[in-house]
Design a protein around this nucleic acid. Sequence first.
DNA 1: GAGGCCTGTTGACCAATATCAATGCCGTAC
DNA 2: GTACGGCATTGATATTGGTCAACAGGCCTC
Lengths: 260, 260
Amino acid sequence: MNFTAPPGQPRGIAVGLKLLTSLPCDRCVGRSLNLCRPLDDARLRRLLALGGIRHWKRHETLFRAGDPMTSFFKIRKGIAAVSRALDDGRRQIVAVRAPGDCVGYLDNDGRYAFEGEALTDVEACAFDRRGFDAFAADHPDLAAAVSEALSSALKQTGQAMLVLGQLKSTERVAHFLCEIDALYRDRHIGGTPLVLHMSRGEIGDYLGLTIETVSRSMGKLKKRGLIGLIGSDGVVVLEGAKLREVGKVGAAPASVAAAF
Amino acid sequence: MNFTAPPGQPRGIAVGLKLLTSLPCDRCVGRSLNLCRPLDDARLRRLLALGGIRHWKRHETLFRAGDPMTSFFKIRKGIAAVSRALDDGRRQIVAVRAPGDCVGYLDNDGRYAFEGEALTDVEACAFDRRGFDAFAADHPDLAAAVSEALSSALKQTGQAMLVLGQLKSTERVAHFLCEIDALYRDRHIGGTPLVLHMSRGEIGDYLGLTIETVSRSMGKLKKRGLIGLIGSDGVVVLEGAKLREVGKVGAAPASVAAAF
DNA sequence: GAGGCCTGTTGACCAATATCAATGCCGTAC
DNA sequence: GTACGGCATTGATATTGGTCAACAGGCCTC
């Protein structure tokens, strides 16, 4: 942090007549990530005009699969899960998204293809999808940023398929912890101890395991001395290298903001 | 097939002086899919100049994860698998690709992020990645086609995560059969009986199951009268509706050519 | 046509994980 | 402070799918 201006003062007023108000982006972690990265203030302002900032409480639904898509969301604060459910109640969380990531972008014929749920209180920019598409069509650098976010998400889901299809329960949990640790570290949220913000059930829905198996796997990792548990939501990574080894985590996966 | 011109005659010569040779695209199933769809003949010609048509035999490697990425590929004929492996031999096939699809598109820092392998003999256009990116940067409709292919792939992998994380072995196999059936039908390859072109081991690597479990699940579906088996590679879908029910396949998934 | 190899099928057994159930912990409401 | 509800943990048991092994069928070579 090396601001010279005092915090809280509306920035921009002093800069010039054109900027009458400060942008909410000035304080957004995602300003330099994903869609927003290539944009200058003027274009950010035009993008913001396509929607507004919205808020959800933990466990609230951001969007529902099959509902008509109006806007998609770029997370400013908090964590969200993108998921898909079967009629019989089984559900699979397909991605955990953090500030800077987009959710609710994928559509099926004008309808959301997945569910979005707040894992913590969430604040996000909502962008009208049609307006955004039109805007992106005129701005190749923005369109390129979308492609990059999609590519990044695709690499992540490919990796996730490896986890679901090939890893044993304890390997999956170890992988999950490394993944969340890397994600939070990348987005500069949290620290030590790592706070998961996910119940055992939510972790299970992400890893294709039951609550009990997640709990037991955590216990095994703890007994092996790789992690420490603080309450049920806090994790201290004691042996990062070994944990990554168990979780079959390759070299630094260059976490990049993604869209889903 | 309602061509009026006799097949085999070089098309294009009669059309005008500008077209000195016919395009290989004239006979490519993927001409109207994916990247190529928005392009007219002149631009197709420029795209083709970025590479050439290449061939692989069944089981040959198209590209290897970690190898420097030179070009990516758009399949003209045959089926290919995109996969990812662990050091200990376990591997996960993350996508099965057919004519019109792209493979080898995802990179990590200039290197292929996944493996590509021919499941049958494969013919594909190879496009130099850098050249393509530059070309796409000047052609918004092409860039949009890339985004669409990536979005489509992302929806597919989300669905695949649901399959791997939540479905039982027989459900997975039923899902797989429906998926392949829809894919081949969409690309106008094969017919009845459905020819899988994948060994039990390859299916297992896709579904996160062992050879034996795939075999037993096929047996169960056969005994239930949902499918018939012709040899080990041929499948007759006898009860499509029931098979889709077992495989938890939602309504027509609007199969769209995708990139990986 | 015989032999060998590769793949698939089938059976027996075992290990991993799901399921069911009991208990404990923690936060909240009254 | 006490009671309650939700979630996590732990144990006992059931089920699924993996592992190991035997065998069968198809295809190729010689």
